[in-house]
């Protein structure tokens, strides 16, 4: 095992103890098999305890694990015949986003994803997976292509956020993100988005307007990185763990908010422990969602996507409004109530 996180330490220590005991027994010719069996059992129990109820902060660390599979890893593991396509045709090729054509079984699809680097050099070239406007515009170009040729779009989300730099601002970072949000809403092909690591803010959402949004079990998704939230809340970015607990960033939370449709289970210990197994599970899930969506017409796909996002939000129609509208004939007020009843079922009107 390599790349253990701080919270995995007890497990590592127990493993060392077991190995040591085994070695000692062999050297001295003493039979510790009972003892070892007991420790192995304890190890399995501990593992179960440790991984079954991970805290949001622990998940955040897994989502950011340096060995965690990236978009390209998933693309190669799930699809065949990947042809990478480059550039936004306007300014440059942003390596923080990759994309191109691939086959899912026999089906040609367009795949796009944020791309973190594998090492420092790679990370610098890819801006640690934080795109500039040209990255978002490359993604848009590929999606328009997919829409034209009626190919489903699969996106992989894995970024701390859009790159916060002066050149990004000058070239229209906001406009690039905004345009993706608007255009993704009206493509007449199925769009499936998978949050595979960290879904950070607008830079993540710019690839995230799908008919289905799936999340890997330990992935996180939020409006601001827990580090950013901590520095605003407590003027201390190092309190990210604390912020992670507060901000409801896990797949479970987002499923409860109906922001995502499905949680894709990860191998015990995280995605990096067994990519082939995870890729198989994810592939089946993507296929299942695609086949569900395949029955919808272009217009129905657009409407399905619209309704998915339309209903998100938590708010209350205050009682003052009820009093005001009470005397009015029915029609509009009722309609408003109906609208608010849907997204905020628990509204305390």
């Amino acid at each position: 095992m390599a790349g253990e996180l701080a919270f995995e330490k007890p497990l590592v220590e127990l493993r060392l103890k077991i190995d040591e005991l085994k070695r000692f027994g062999q050297e001295k010719g003493i039979d510790f098999s009972d003892e070892i069996a007991r420790l192995e059992l304890r190890y399995e129990q501990l593992k179960q305890e440790l991984y079954s109820e991970l805290t949001p902060a622990q998940k955040m660390h897994l989502a950011r694990h340096h060995q965690r599979p990236t978009s390209l890893d998933f693309i190669h593991a799930i699809f065949t015949d990947f042809i990478e396509l480059h550039g936004d045709r306007l300014f440059a090729d942003d390596l923080a986003i990759v994309g191109g054509l691939a086959k899912l079984g026999d089906l040609p699809v367009t795949v796009i994803g944020h791309q973190r680097g594998k090492d420092t050099k790679d990370n610098i070239a890819r801006f640690f997976g934080s795109p500039h406007p040209e990255g978002f515009r490359k993604a848009l170009r590929l999606m328009q292509q997919a829409n034209k040729f009626k190919r489903p779009i699969i996106t992989f989300i894995d970024t701390k956020g859009a790159y916060p730099g002066n050149t990004a601002e000058e070239r229209g970072q906001s406009e690039a993100i905004a345009r993706n949000l608007r255009e993704m809403a009206i493509f007449g092909v199925p769009i499936i988005c998978v949050v595979i690591g960290e879904g950070g803010s607008g830079g993540a959402l710019a690839l995230g307007v799908g008919n289905r949004v799936l999340m890997l079990e330990n992935a996180i998704y939020s409006v601001i990185s827990p580090n950013g939230a901590a520095s605003i809340l407590w003027k201390d970015a190092s309190k990210a763990d604390q912020a992670a607990e507060t901000m409801k960033i896990t797949a479970k939370d987002l499923l409860a908010f109906e922001v995502i449709e499905e949680i894709v289970p990860e191998p015990q210990g995280g995605a990096h422990r067994d990519l082939p197994q995870l890729a198989e599970v994810l592939k089946e899930s993507i296929k299942r969602h695609l086949s569900e969506l395949s029955t919808l017409s272009e217009q129905e796909l657009i409407e399905d996507r619209y309704q998915k996002f339309r209903k998100i939000g938590a708010f209350t129609e205050a009682t003052a409004a009820c009093a005001e509208t009470a005397g009015e004939p029915e029609g509009e007020p009722e309609e408003q109530l109906e609208q608010s009843a849907e997204p905020s079922a628990q509204a305390q009107v």
Partner: peptide, 19 residues
């Protein structure tokens, strides 16, 4: 976006843009 509503705030970006 309003941090205190985290992911729900983020999704308002998609909602308004889709509209």
């Amino acid at each position: 976006a309003r941090m205190q509503e985290s992911i729900l705030s983020l999704m308002q970006m998609a909602k308004t843009s889709a509209a």
